[in-house]
């Protein structure tokens, strides 16, 4: 199966390491992807605060474009950013459920020479890697297991609720399974799906920072050596403000925060440079990678 790839704005900016590592990883696993041509902003959170119908129209255009290149059947569109993933899914639901939104969006699409038939499945990389590629294939591709690296898998909010169906919204496990397949140990913690603060770290620093700090602190308490993320905004919030947390909360947190795709890539022996590891800000741990050819030990 071939997938379409919708990067979204962040993966072209602060989230570059996510894009680099994701594409490398998929390539290594033999998953074919093609970036959607002419895509536009998904209509995310901030846009929806101003006008949700326009936000749905923005999302719908991307879905139309994907449908047009996807051929006659259902097509799968990978959206790695949680906000994009949520909005693209939400648009599908609301266009279907709210008659007037559906009418307005359909008519506006028509005026722009587009039509949407509802044949796009919006997928998150976690979903594709776990359900389509599967833990077994990942295990086989691992050449340098993350021997016992203690990872706190952090899913964030919008990738597990309310439109996602690929994991448990209260105690998501998919990322844990993937990283365990790569030889890591994942910590059991209760804040996996708690909000990172979103854009509040920039707009209401007091509130936003505390939310991110709470997550890092708990990850540290649970013994994590690294936090793995699946969303560019989460990664940015958790990583880029650690020095400010120190000055505000008097607690020097030095916690590496990497994309789960980077960690999987490392375990598959992809060079750090190709995974955008040098683009991370927080101090990088010596990731305990096994010698080439080592097998993943223990129960997964």
């Amino acid at each position: 199966m071939k997938y379409l790839y919708y990067p979204g704005c962040s993966l072209k900016g602060s989230g570059r390491p996510y894009e680099e590592s994701l594409l490398r990883l998929l390539d290594r696993l033999g998953v074919e992807v093609a970036e959607l041509a002419h895509w536009n902003c998904c209509g995310a959170t901030a846009y929806m605060s101003v006008d949700e119908v326009q936000a749905f129209a923005l999302a719908a255009r991307n879905l139309c474009l994907a449908e047009a290149c996807g051929g006659p059947g259902d097509a799968h569109l990978i959206a790695p950013c949680s906000a994009c993933y949520l909005v693209l899914n939400k648009a599908q639901v609301y266009i279907r459920q709210y008659a007037r939104i559906g009418q307005v969006v359909a008519e506006a699409l028509r005026a722009a020479g587009l039509e949407y038939h509802g044949r796009i499945k919006v997928r998150h990389p976690l979903d594709v890697l776990f359900h389509d590629v599967g833990v077994e294939r990942i295990k086989k591709a691992v050449t340098r297991p993350l021997q016992g690296l203690k990872v706190a898998c952090y899913y964030g909010c919008q990738v597990v609720r309310p439109y996602a169906t690929f994991d448990n919204p209260y105690n998501p496990m998919v990322m844990d399974h993937l990283l365990r397949a790569a030889g890591a140990q994942t910590v059991d913690w209760s804040l996996k799906a708690r909000c990172c603060g979103g854009t509040l770290t920039g707009t209401m620093e007091e509130a936003g920072l505390r939310l991110s700090y709470i997550l890092l602190k708990e990850a540290r308490t649970q013994g994590a050596q690294v936090v793995a993320t699946a969303c560019p905004l989460c990664q940015f919030n958790l990583e880029c403000y650690q020095d400010r947390m120190q000055s505000r909360f008097g607690d020097g947190i030095e916690m590496p925060v990497a994309y789960f795709t980077q960690l999987l890539g490392m375990a598959m022996g992809i060079p750090a440079g190709k995974l955008g590891m040098e683009r991370l800000l927080a101090p990088q741990p010596a990731i305990p990678i096994g010698p080439p050819g080592a097998a993943v030990k223990g129960e997964i």
Binding site: C157, P162, G197, G198, T199, M204, A207
Partner: peptide, 11 residues
């Protein structure tokens, strides 16, 4: 304005 759209309440 403090709502970050994490959807915890909705769920």
């Amino acid at each position: 304005w403090l709502c970050t759209s994490c959807y915890a309440c909705t769920v």
